[in-house]
């Protein structure tokens, strides 16, 4: 045995749907209800839409055939279109989850304080002052905490694009280059 039709009351009309059409109808109305969630007119608009669907389907029914199938329902739904709230702002891009990161741009050491400042939305100087105060208050233990954070926290992607770049201080770079030059001079 198979259930072949579902009777649905739509607005002030009553129609018979086959299973597939009924499922399609349910998902359209659920989607509309989601879009209208929070609108004070949700119930009214849904009732209007139900009536519109019923009218559109009736218009498309072949005479003498009492069952709405997807063949009638789909063009009806296409004509009605998805629900659009008036003046709704374009959907905002999903904000990436806020994550504690090191920010090497403008960093003094590695960017840990910079990262904390960005995470909490405060001035980086304030974070640095607090870090120095904590350094003395903790009797130096803060250095270990800082080192741990420096090693563990990921780097924020550079705002100038490209991969995050760990800034190597100019002096160290010069030193490394001169050592390399001397090494290659000595080995050749």
């Amino acid at each position: 045995m198979q259930r072949i039709s579902v009777t649905a009351s739509l607005g002030r009309s009553t129609l018979q749907f086959d299973e597939a059409a009924y499922a399609r109808l349910e998902s359209y109305l659920a989607e509309a209800a989601r879009t209208l969630a929070g609108s004070p007119d949700q119930a009214e608009i849904l009732a209007d839409l139900e009536q519109a669907i019923a009218d559109q389907c009736s218009k498309r029914m072949q005479a003498g055939l009492g069952l709405v199938t997807v063949a009638q329902l789909q063009p009806a739904l296409d004509e009605i279109g998805s629900v659009q709230l008036p003046g709704s702002a374009p959907e905002r891009e999903a904000q990436p989850a806020r994550q504690l990161q090191q920010v090497s741009e403008g960093a003094l050491i590695s960017g840990v304080c910079n990262g904390f400042a960005r995470y909490f939305g405060v001035d980086v100087t304030l974070v640095r002052v607090m870090a120095v105060v904590l350094l003395f208050a903790s009797g130096g233990t803060m250095i270990l905490v800082y080192l741990a954070l420096m090693l563990l926290l990921p780097y924020a992607p550079s705002t100038r694009g490209g991969a995050p770049i760990r800034k190597i201080p100019a002096k160290s770079r010069q030193l490394a280059e001169s050592v390399r030059a001397k090494f290659s001079a000595a080995t050749t």
Binding site: L36, S39, I45, D48, L49, A52, G81, Q84, P86, G87
Partner: peptide
């Protein structure tokens, strides 16, 4: 325009 747009607009105007 489609009904999906018009009904919400009319409800807003009525409100």
């Amino acid at each position: 325009t489609q009904e999906g747009t018009l009904y919400p607009l009319l409800s807003k105007l009525r409100r």
